[in-house]
């Protein structure tokens, strides 16, 4: 059994006067590939923001590699997990290279302006970035930018990456590119947690699926179990059509 690297215990979290996550408990082992699904507004992003410390939990505990997240310094946290958020705001006009250089920050000697160039070129190679690294991140398509963000995450920490809807606004080809890259990383030992909206992607990933409904953990099962018990019906309050072919699970809308 691989060791446990993330554990949430009775987590309650949310915004100023609105509690969104209620009593969330689950754990993730090293090398897992966990996908998180659930209706809009159920608290998926809130969950990620609590793990990233952007939100301070109301109560409950988050343990990272056995250490309480509250006791980690920002620097320690940034060396343990890297995040890929879905960013909607306009970013500064950095080139890909400048953007990636910022991700070496957790390992920089303070105030010494030296970047680990090898790490950067390795990440560019692993993620298969085709654009010239001197092109501006503002001129990239969504798919290209997602690759660049993923390369940034690999530079920051390639052992544990958490992603928020990495393929939601991508075309099928780019979605496949990103998902197969994630599987490749996972096969080489990276632990991955990702929020997904496409059930057909989630059901065919190697790891377990965490279903969140109204701020609570609704299920935390592998794909076969979800398929057999039709758990996603209740999760979204609609009826799906399920079928299975060549060991792949499908879960289709009925409209």
């Amino acid at each position: 059994m691989n060791r446990e690297i993330l554990r949430l215990k009775n987590l309650n979290s949310g915004y100023a006067d609105k509690l969104i996550l209620k009593n969330i408990s689950f754990s993730v082992n090293e090398g897992d590939f966990i996908s998180i699904i659930g209706p809009n507004g159920c608290g998926k992003t809130t969950l990620l923001r609590s793990i990233s410390s952007e939100l301070t939990p109301e109560s409950g505990e988050i343990e990272l590699y056995g250490k309480n997240l509250k006791n980690c310094t920002p620097g320690e946290r940034s060396r343990l997990i890297s995040f890929v958020f879905s960013i909607n705001s306009k970013l500064p006009d950095y080139t890909i290279e400048q953007f990636l250089q910022l991700h070496t920050f957790p390992y920089d000697v303070p105030f010494l302006f030296k970047n680990d160039e090898k790490k950067i070129s390795d990440a560019v190679k692993i993620c298969g970035i085709k654009n010239s690294i001197t092109s501006s991140i503002r001129n990239l398509s969504s798919g290209e930018f997602q690759l660049v963000q993923l390369a940034g995450a690999c530079i920051q920490n390639s052992r544990f990456i958490i992603l928020d809807e990495p393929v939601s606004h991508l075309d099928p080809r780019n979605a496949q590119l990103i998902m197969s890259l994630l599987r490749k990383l996972n096969a080489s030992g990276t632990t991955i947690i990702t929020v997904l909206h496409d059930l057909n992607i989630a059901l065919n990933l190697p790891g377990r699926i965490l279903g969140i409904r109204k701020g609570r953990v609704y299920f935390y099962e592998n794909a076969a179990e979800i398929y057999n018990k039709k758990l996603t019906d209740k999760l979204y309050d609609i009826e799906f059509t399920y079928y299975r072919k060549n060991n792949r699970y499908f879960c289709l809308n009925s409209y």
Binding site: E54, P92, P106
Partner: peptide, 24 residues
């Protein structure tokens, strides 16, 4: 000027600032 890399990251927004480990 010594904080220039911090500022580069901060201008990317809150998500990057928090996850890349800039302390308050």
């Amino acid at each position: 000027l010594l904080y220039s890399k911090h500022l580069d990251i901060i201008s990317l927004g809150k998500e990057y600032t928090v996850t890349l480990g800039i302390s308050s």
